[in-house]
C-alpha cells in the first residue's frame, strides 16, 4: 500500500460526497442566483432520517435510502415555498438571512431530537478492505463511489434529455425569456429544490454509513461543497462534480504537508483564493454580471 494511492483514494471518496452536495448549490444558484445556506443541513437531515429508518426501526438500507431521499426532497419543496419564495423579490441579504435561520433551526432541532452525541450506522465489524491500485478501500467506500457516480449520471441524463431538464437550462439562461415562451418557472424552481435536496440526502446517508453522524455535520460539508461549486464555476453542473473531486483531493493530499488540525481550513483557504483570483471558477461562464454586483 502506498501512501499516495491511499490519499488519492480518500480524496476521491470525500470528493464524490462533496460533488453530490455541490450539485444542489449549483443548480439552485444557476436558477435563483441565491446561495441556499440550509443545504448542508438538508444533507445532515438525510443522514439522520436514514439512521432513524435503518438503525432505529430496522428498515433495510435499500429501502431506507430512497425513502430518506424522498423525505428530504419533499422538505426542500416546502422549504422553498414557505421560506424563500415570499422573498424572491427582496434584496439579496433577506433570503440569505432566512436561510441562515433555517440552517440553525434544523441543527438545533437535530440536537433536541437526537442529542449532541454521535450516532453511527455501523453495527458489526468493519469489513476487510480491498486492495485496489495500492490503496485499501472498504466495501462501504466502494459503495459511496458507485452510488454517487450513478446519481450524477442520472442527473446528467435528466438535465440533458428530459423536457423539464431543458426547461431548467432555459430558466438558468434567462428567466424572463424562459417564462415568455411558456415555461413554468415556479415549477422548475420546485424541481431544482427537490432534486438538490434529494441528492444532498443521499450524500448524507453515504457519509453516515462510513463516519459518525453529528447534528453539526452539515456545516463543514456544506461549506466544502460550496467551495467546490465556486472552484468548478457556480451554476455549472459538471463544474460542481469537478470541483467536488478537486476539493476532496486537495484536502486529503494537503494533510500530507500541513498539520491535520488545519484540514478543515484548507477548503476555506481555497475558497478565499478562488474568490480573489478566479471568482468565475474553472468551468464558469465568463459573464461577469453573474458574479459581480
Amino acid at each position: 500500500m502506498s501512501i499516495a494511492a491511499q490519499l488519492i483514494a480518500n480524496g476521491l471518496i470525500a470528493g464524490s460526497i462533496y460533488a453530490l452536495v455541490a450539485l444542489g448549490y449549483t443548480m439552485v444558484y444557476g436558477i435563483l442566483k441565491f446561495i441556499n445556506f440550509a443545504h448542508g443541513e438538508i444533507f445532515m437531515m438525510g443522514a439522520y432520517i436514514g439512521w432513524t429508518l435503518h438503525v432505529l426501526w430496522g428498515v433495510p438500507l435499500l429501502i431506507a435510502f430512497p425513502v430518506a431521499m424522498i423525505c428530504c426532497g419533499a422538505f426542500g419543496y416546502f422549504l422553498e415555498k414557505i421560506a424563500y419564495k415570499p422573498l424572491r423579490n427582496a434584496p439579496v441579504w433577506a433570503p440569505l438571512i432566512t436561510a441562515i435561520g433555517v440552517s440553525i433551526f434544523l441543527q438545533s432541532l437535530a440536537i433536541l431530537i437526537y442529542g449532541a452525541q454521535v450516532k453511527t450506522f455501523r453495527t458489526g465489524e468493519v469489513a476487510q478492505g480491498l486492495h485496489i491500485l495500492g490503496a485499501i478501500i472498504t466495501p462501504i467506500q466502494l459503495t459511496i463511489i458507485i452510488v454517487s457516480t450513478v446519481l450524477m449520471v442520472l442527473l446528467w441524463l435528466f438535465v440533458k434529455k428530459t423536457k423539464i431538464g431543458k426547461a431548467m437550462r432555459a430558466v438558468a439562461d434567462n428567466r424572463e425569456v424562459a417564462s415568455t415562451i411558456g415555461i413554468n418557472v415556479n415549477k422548475v424552481i420546485s424541481v431544482v429544490f427537490v432534486i438538490g435536496s434529494a441528492l444532498a440526502a443521499a450524500g448524507g446517508i453515504l457519509v453516515g454509513m462510513e463516519q459518525n453522524l453529528t447534528p453539526t455535520m452539515g456545516v463543514s460539508v456544506g461549506i466544502k461543497a460550496f467551495t467546490a461549486t465556486i472552484v468548478g464555476g457556480i451554476g455549472s453542473i459538471p463544474g460542481a462534480v469537478l470541483g467536488g473531486l478537486a476539493i476532496g483531493l486537495i484536502e486529503n493530499i494537503g494533510i500530507w504537508f500541513i498539520p491535520s488540525g488545519y484540514k478543515d481550513a484548507i477548503a476555506f483557504i481555497i475558497l478565499l483564493l478562488m474568490l480573489i483570483f478566479k471568482p468565475t471558477g474553472i468551468l464558469g461562464r465568463k459573464k461577469e454580471e453573474d458574479v459581480r454586483g
Partner: peptide, 23 residues
Amino acid sequence: PCLRLRGDYLAIATLGFGEIIRA
C-alpha cells in the same frame, strides 16, 4: 478581496474566515 463580488459571496467568505481564525 470579497467586496468586489456580489453580496452573498462576502457572507460565505466571512463564514470561511471565521472558521480559519478558529482553526
